[in-house]
Design a protein around this nucleic acid. Structure first.
Lengths: 343, 343
DNA sequence: TTGTAAGCGTTATCAC
DNA sequence: GTGATAACGCTTACAA
């Protein structure tokens, strides 16, 4: 297999030579300025390009035009199906505009987040989508002085003038809790990953707390668990279920990852859903319907979130200077067998 | 919020001016050639860079050095957890080397695959990871004439001299079938997505077929289903289960996505696992353990597949001209409740 | 140890 | 309609 040297790549100069015109003319053709080109010239250039299998060099083009045709996407956890669903929406918009996406996974590590953002800046990305770790607020604030449009996904950063796209956590959480209350549940636990710094977690938890007094369940049953340590979740379950005095308990998982660990913990303890405890969760994962008689879940319009976020980027790139928007989509409650009416 | 114009970006010239040295000297500093720089010069440059918050422009650097520091990753289905797991492995290797990944999702559409590859070539990616749709063989073959290292993931392309990284499908399938036979199963159905063009599907199915005569199960129970149409899967189940004359049947799902649809179909038909039918599957998805008493599955070392693929890319970039390698990792059978011994 | 100058592959400005 | 030519921000001979 012979390998062509990179430097042997065909350039606009080659095309110009073969077509018998100047680089400028070829460049005009590439730029789609057909109205200033004669038919015959167009035809000759077209042929030369095909014959040579020419592909314009985006680095050169980008250097000159001060655009990279690259969008950065920094996600806290790419393994979360939420992230890939958002990515798909974002990508479809990008593709249509001739842009490509640089994907970075921070693993919820703020240091990685900073490093990746610096790296992306080096590539002169034209836009940046961030699902932030929530622990780089000062650093992110500096991005605001930058020229590059930034859209935050799911997680907001206080004070900043960034566009934000995500779920209407207030509506979704409230709807879910009212649903549980209507079904007759009086003892509700809310289990979340660590809330500090992550706006969506905070917003959801706040609704749980705010409605507690009003509706007579205990705000104390808000549990933060670090999912790295399974013991903690086990303790939380013991603590909560022990407190349920005859009343049917329900556990509200703050996202799909929590739900996964929760189900695992319940199974290992021999606790049945929904006989012993009811379950409801954020994120309608692909497998939620398959667990037992199905897990009641709040579905997010993830694809649309990705699309919308990317559309904001392009609007900003095209000069939209309006104040930062906060776009929140409604969640949809999918009722399944894990939350039967309390008899 | 004031927006800096892109053209106001600080350049190496600015740094040189502030530090009171030439561009060349700054470039040497950036390139890490500290041995040719005086301590005081280094210090002044360092300070200037920090003061100005300078980030080198990768497009300019890339144009000059004929390297983009970009790797393309073209996946047939980014929604598949397999893809993101591979991505994580690939990304960790990249990050350490200062490279970034351009992620493209083809949705198993050959046209999209071609478009994305052309786009990536335009960006002059330094390496390309492809999990191909399997329907662009001629197109892919042309990539071999290119200078850019290509590594195929999971799915091979006939004849081509590309490095390949994936599962040892022969070993894994064979091991799983022998496991089923040892457990006493005599009626085995293998359910796969359309096999045409996808080497991993072909390899797995071939083992199922090859062992059929030898071990007395029917090679006719190899079913190809298009997962877009749920009816087809339902028909397959009817057909197969009707054929099982008193013998305990087991269904072998060719990957995690098939498993998902399979479980859904079984549930909607009221067929119990493992009472009515046993189930085994490729891909140890995060939820496999949670379905009923757990689904027996063949785990792939996905993270390692991603790492290894990316390492091959870098080895090729660094001049390794050895013949194309075919790297196949062993799968690991995770035995759960869905395949009890036949009594 | 440092600097000058050419050039990477494009596009933009100006001329014809 | 078309073409010279000068950038874009960087690296790299070659000089000093």
């Amino acid at each position: 297999m012979t390998r062509k040297k990179q430097t042997d790549r065909v350039t606009i100069t080659d095309v110009a030579r073969v077509a018998g015109v100047s680089k400028t003319t070829v460049s005009r053709y590439l730029g789609g300025q057909y109205h200033v080109l004669s038919e015959s010239t167009q035809a000759r250039i077209k042929e030369a390009i095909e014959q040579l299998n020419y592909r314009p060099n985006q680095m050169a083009r980008g250097l000159k035009r001060d655009r990279s045709y690259l969008i950065g996407m920094v996600m806290a956890d790419i393994s979360n199906p939420y992230s890939t669903a958002v990515l798909r929406g974002a990508e479809d918009v990008c593709k249509q505009k001739g842009y490509s996406i640089l994907v970075c996974n921070t693993d919820n590590d703020p240091a990685k987040e900073r490093e990746y953002i610096l790296m992306l800046q080096s590539h002169r990305i034209d836009g940046l989508l961030i699902n932030t770790t929530g622990k780089n607020n000062d650093f992110l604030r500096e991005l605001a002085n930058d020229c590059t449009p930034v859209v935050l996904i799911d997680r907001k950063v206080p004070v900043l003038g960034f566009d934000t796209v995500g779920l209407d956590n207030e509506q979704a959480t409230s709807e879910a809790i009212h649903f549980l209350l209507n079904r007759g549940y009086k003892r509700i636990a809310y289990v979340s990953e660590p809330i500090a710094g992550v706006s969506s977690r905070r917003e959801r938890a706040a609704v749980f707390t705010a409605l507690a007094d009003q509706y007579g369940y205990s705000a104390d049953d808000l549990y933060e668990v670090n999912l790295q340590s399974p013991e903690r979740l086990s303790e939380v379950l013991d603590h909560f279920l022990q407190r349920t005095q005859g009343e049917k308990p329900v556990i509200f998982a703050a996202n799909g990852v929590v739900l996964l660990k929760l189900i695992r913990a319940l199974q290992s303890k021999g606790i049945s859903v929904p006989e012993d405890v009811a379950v409801i969760s954020f994120d309608d994962t692909e497998w939620a319907a398959l667990i037992g008689s199905g897990i009641t879940a709040i579905a997010q319009p993830t694809y649309q979130i990705g699309m919308t976020a990317m559309e904001r980027i392009f609007q900003r790139m095209e000069g939209d200077g309006s104040p930062a928007q906060n776009i929140a989509f409604a969640g949809k409650l999918i009722i399944r067998g894990s939350t039967p009416p309390v008899v």
